[in-house]
Structures are given as structure tokens and as C-alpha cells.
Design a protein around this nucleic acid. Structure first.
Lengths: 338, 338
DNA sequence: TTGAAAGCGCTAACAC
DNA sequence: GTGTTAGCGCTTTCAA
């Protein structure tokens, strides 16, 4: 069962390979009658264009590389899904790389994708600093869009949620529901989400009163760190734990319950991202929902509109507005759910 | 910055493109001196083989398509991660398809991958019945391994966890810790995991006593169904909820707590899969851990050893042994954790 | 051991 | 509109 090629179709329809190519690719106008004949022959023979040959000749593989730190990070699957759909809708296939949170692996994967002639790259960088070189090099060769996390200024186009706006929504909500002594459990390091959420908290928490913006403890984006942070902070009895992401918040929630704290009566807990786990926590977690579908659509669009040269046109960063999702973990005070 | 090609390297090292190709691909023996010169020139020019051209000529893209129902199913990310690593270690890249749990989309994605000349396919079928045709057709063209779920007998090689053994581990554990009135919350439909776990429960639950194997309620693999099932069954006071996967179990756990049931004192709850959520539930969920890394390794191995023809050699199904992970949700009776 | 030459299947100039 | 002709960059005969 040898593959059917363009030649076979040409032979069967009595015209040249060029004509067949034009009919099937729709590149140039072709006579109506010929078109019909060719279509019919292609159909009859079950012709399927060989995308590899097409790619070699046209210098476009119709493939984009999606490079991410760790697919097991619960925020990513939904994003990957939307990206896959958005790209597939444009007829592009997705090559996936999981970098194991390691910049060296990331550089290797990016390099391998370039060798495979991907048309473009979508990168969620592992690290703000250590990913920079590889990303910048790649961006010079193909259209590249940074997603969710930054990678230093001017390196590439980027699309991300507006972390500051999200944090502002949280603080506003907490203030409006009577919280007065918030604290912040964040992540240290230079990752853009970590920095931006932390900064936004510090900027906004001043509004809670003349006193300091409450305690700020920094660790990493993990459930475990959420638990630890509660151990450190709870003795000073804040009335709200503002967490830099949902994993931290879930850890905080767990530990607070173990300690017998009343959430949300005595203390509120909020997260960020709205991963699936957030809705399943008990009490369900108030959090900031990232507009995942929009992030994906915007990234796909940016990718499509970049010139192929990979030239250093002015880089643009698109910020998408998040949405506050109020759930039980920040419910009304004084009326503890029984 | 035009790409460096084999010709450039040949010119720079003073020999023919054929020789350069042989040196770099290591296909045929080449003189030591020549080898050195070529290597040096390639290095100096920063030569990177164009994988598309290589693929066209050698009829092998070094690419495998990974087709799955929904990346957002929390069991898949870990599997995808392991597969990506296993395949990348062999120098193969992974094309990802998310089928939105729709057989038609699945068929389209598989078809698109074949057009792209993937060397092989790894498929977690959407549906036992409705995925069958597309999978069988694809298996006739390239090596194909079914993962995690079956697709009818004899369709393709398959690798999956031994669901029956896993369920047996659960039942044994429950019996050993004194449970006597189990019930089963499963999923209906013909998906292999659903059927196998259900059957294994029915086969094993007889050991709990002469009476019927407790109630069996079937819905789908969701948290919501877990909650609903508890509403239906709890009034009859079983002392163990054996759930067909972790999502159902988490839902059951939530609802039981809302109803004021004491888990594990009064009733045990068990899951299946050991998704990340299982360890975070409260109480933490006793479950059956799938050997994800081994599943991935085995799948990659099966793929590699299949003849290229995609011929219908005898199909083999590999079953991997799961492991019971005992956590708080099935802890000792009568000593309710306070 | 090496080189020359023939393509892999397709698209894109360039003629007609 | 359509055919002819070159290749895309590489691997792989086939000779030497």
C-alpha cells in the first residue's frame, strides 16, 4: 500500500503535478473543469498531501512548539488545552516540551524545536533570568510569544494576566467585607508572577490602615509552603491570608483547619489562578480567575501577526484582566458556616 | 542570516556533502582525519541539520503523536510528562492532541498526525467503541500503542494498569481493617477502566460475607457524581465507599463531611489513580497508585519495537501492577481522628 | 573510504 | 490557466 502522491493524482486526472498542487493548495486560480477533475481524482485515490515534503519546499511546517516548565503544574493543563485548540483551528500542530523546571532542559528543547523547523514558539519560561538567553536567541529566529511569565524586558512579545489588577480585586473584596489585618503569603525569587503579585499586595494593602501592610512571608508556590507559612503567621492572628497562588492557599486552608481556625468566620483565605482544585477545597477558595481561553487566543494571535524574520520589531506585552471568584473561604464574617 | 546547510559544511571542510552526511549521521565509516575536519567545520559554522529535509529523505520524522481525550483530566498531566521525557530521551519529539473527549475530533487529529508523517502514535482513546475505527485504521499505517484505556480486542498493542489487581488491593485492605459493608461508586459505560474496576469489585466484594457485595451505583468519573452517589447510598450506612477513581472519591469525601459522617471512623473512602488531589483531600485519600513512569516507559518501548509496516502482528497487552497507597481516609476504625 | 548523482514529494518561478 | 523545470536539504545508492 504505497502512498498516493501528487504524481499519481496528476496522472489519474490527466494534468500536471503543478496544476494538481494549485487546485489542492488553492494557491492560484485554476479552471473550473480541471478543478473538478482533479478533486475527483484526489478523492478517489484517497490522496493526502505529505506535510513533510510540503514543509521542506515551502519552508513552513505548520507546527508550533509549546515549551513549558512542568505540565504537572495544575495551572497549565487548561492553558495547554486552549492553546492546542486555538492553534489547531489555524491548522497548526503543537509540539510539546516539558522542561522539568530546568533552564538547561528548556534550552535544549527550544533548540531541538528550532532544528525541527517549527514555525513559531510559545514559551512559558522556567525562570525570569535563566531562561532569557535561550528565549532571546530563539526569538531572533522565529516568531515567539512568552506566556504567563515574563523573561526580562524587550526579549519577546508576551501575554499574561494583569497580576496587579487581580491582586487589587482581592484586596478590595477583603476590605469591603470588613477584613482589616491581612497578611501575604507569596513566593520569593524573580519570577514575574511572584514579583508582580507581591508588589501589588504591598501597594494595595496600605489602604487597610495606617499600620504596615501586615506580614509578608515569602516561600515558593507550593501547598507545603502554604502550611508552613500559616505556622509562622497564625500566632499573630491576621484576619485574612492573601496567597500568591491557589496551591499556597490550599495549604494554608488545610493547616488553618488543623489548627482549629474558623475560615471564613475568623480568617479569610484567598488564592490566585483558579485552578480546578480551588473549587474543590473546603471551604471552596475565593480566588482570581485567569482568563485562560483569552490568554491562549491572544497568544495565538500575536504569534500569527509576527513577521517571519523573527526581527526585533517593538515588543509588546498584552495584559488581560482577571476576574474575582468569590467562594466560601472569604465569606461573611461572624456567621461561621456550620 | 541564512541557514548553514550541509553544502556549506562540505565546502568549508573540502569534501562532499555525502561524506559530511555520513560523518554527522554516523551511518558509514569515514576516515579519521576527514571526520575531524568535518566535525570541526560543522562546529565552527554552527551547523544544525534540518530535520525536515532529513525526514523527507529518510522517511522518518522522529516524531510521535500523543492523542488524549482531555489534558485537563487530572490523571493525564503526569502521564504526559513521563511520556514526553521517555520519548525525548530517544530523540523523538511529541506532537500533542487534545480531543475534547470527542471521538470525531480524535479521528481528525489522528488523521492530521498521519498526514504529518508521525513515526508512531500513542493513543489514549476517548471511547472504547467510538474510537475503534480511527485507531484501527491508524494502527495499520504506523506503530501504535494504546495507553491506559482499551479499544476493543486485537486493535493494537496496549499498556495499562492492572485494574483488577488494584481493586483487589483495596478490598483486601478494607477487609483487613475490619470493614464489612462496602459499597461501590463507579462509572457506567464501556470504557475499559470503568468496566474492569467494576467487575473486579463485584468479583472481590463477595469475600466480605455471604450477603450481596453491597450497593453498586454507576455514574461517571466526576466529583459531582461522587457527591450525588453519597446522597443515594449513605442512608443505608455502608462502612466503606470504594470509588472507581479519585475524583469520585473526593466528591464522596466532601459530601460525607457535609453530612457529618466521620471518615474514617464511621466509614472509609477509597479512590483509584492517585492523582495529586488525592493527597490534598481531607482526610487524605487512600487510593491505588498507577505506575505512571512505568506505563510511559513500557509504552515507549512497545512503540520502538513495533515493525514500521504497522502490520497486524499479534497484539499484546501489557498490564502493570499498581500499588496501594494507604492514607487517612481508610484509617483505623473506632479511633476517629480529632 | 569517498564522490557523484539521484531523488524523497512537494511548491514556486518562469514560460507558454 | 497550465505545463515545465528547478530545486528545498538531506540520505543513499552506485561507482570509483
Amino acid at each position: 500500500m504505497a502512498e498516493v502522491t501528487l504524481r499519481d493524482v496528476a496522472r489519474a486526472s490527466g494534468c500536471s503535478v503543478a496544476t494538481v498542487s494549485r487546485v489542492l493548495a488553492g494557491t492560484r486560480p485554476v479552471g473550473a473543469e480541471t478543478t473538478r477533475t482533479v478533486r475527483e481524482a484526489a478523492e478517489r485515490l484517497g490522496y493526502r498531501p505529505n506535510q513533510v515534503a510540503r514543509a521542506l519546499r515551502s519552508r513552513s511546517t505548520g507546527t508550533v512548539g509549546l515549551v513549558l516548565p512542568q505540565i504537572t503544574n495544575p495551572f497549565f493543563p487548561a492553558l495547554v488545552r486552549e492553546l492546542e485548540h486555538a492553534l489547531h483551528a489555524e491548522g497548526r500542530a503543537v509540539l510539546l516540551a516539558d522542561c522539568d523546571d530546568d533552564p538547561a532542559t528548556e534550552a535544549a528543547r527550544i533548540s531541538a524545536f528550532l532544528d525541527r523547523q517549527v514555525d513559531a514558539l510559545l514559551v512559558i519560561p522556567v525562570d525570569e533570568r535563566h531562561s532569557r538567553d535561550a528565549v532571546a536567541r530563539a526569538a531572533a529566529r522565529v516568531p515567539l510569544v512568552l506566556l504567563d511569565r515574563g523573561c526580562g524586558p524587550g526579549v519577546a512579545d508576551a501575554v499574561a494576566v494583569d497580576n496587579a489588577a487581580g491582586m487589587a480585586l482581592v484586596l478590595e473584596h477583603l476590605a469591603a467585607t470588613g477584613r482589616r489585618r491581612p497578611c501575604f503569603v507569596g513566593a520569593d525569587g524573580t519570577a514575574s508572577a511572584a514579583v508582580e503579585r507581591r508588589t501589588a499586595y504591598e501597594a494595595g494593602a496600605g489602604a487597610f490602615g495606617p499600620t504596615a501592610p501586615g506580614r509578608v512571608e515569602l516561600g515558593d508556590f507550593s501547598v507545603e509552603w502554604g502550611r508552613t507559612a500559616v505556622n509562622r503567621i497564625w500566632p499573630s492572628r491576621p484576619d485574612a491570608f492573601v496567597c500568591a497562588n491557589d496551591l499556597i492557599a490550599v495549604g494554608a486552608l488545610q493547616r488553618l483547619r488543623q489548627l482549629g481556625a474558623d475560615v471564613p468566620g475568623e480568617v479569610a483565605v484567598t488564592g490566585f489562578d483558579d485552578i480546578p482544585l480551588a473549587g474543590l477545597a473546603d471551604p471552596a477558595l475565593t480566588t482570581v480567575r485567569q482568563p485562560v481561553a483569552e490568554l491562549a487566543a491572544e497568544a495565538a494571535w500575536l504569534l500569527a501577526r509576527q513577521p517571519d524574520g523573527g526581527g526585533a520589531g517593538s515588543r509588546r506585552t498584552v495584559r488581560l484582566a482577571p476576574e474575582l471568584v468569590v467562594r466560601a473561604s472569604s465569606g461573611a464574617r461572624g456567621a461561621p458556616a456550620k
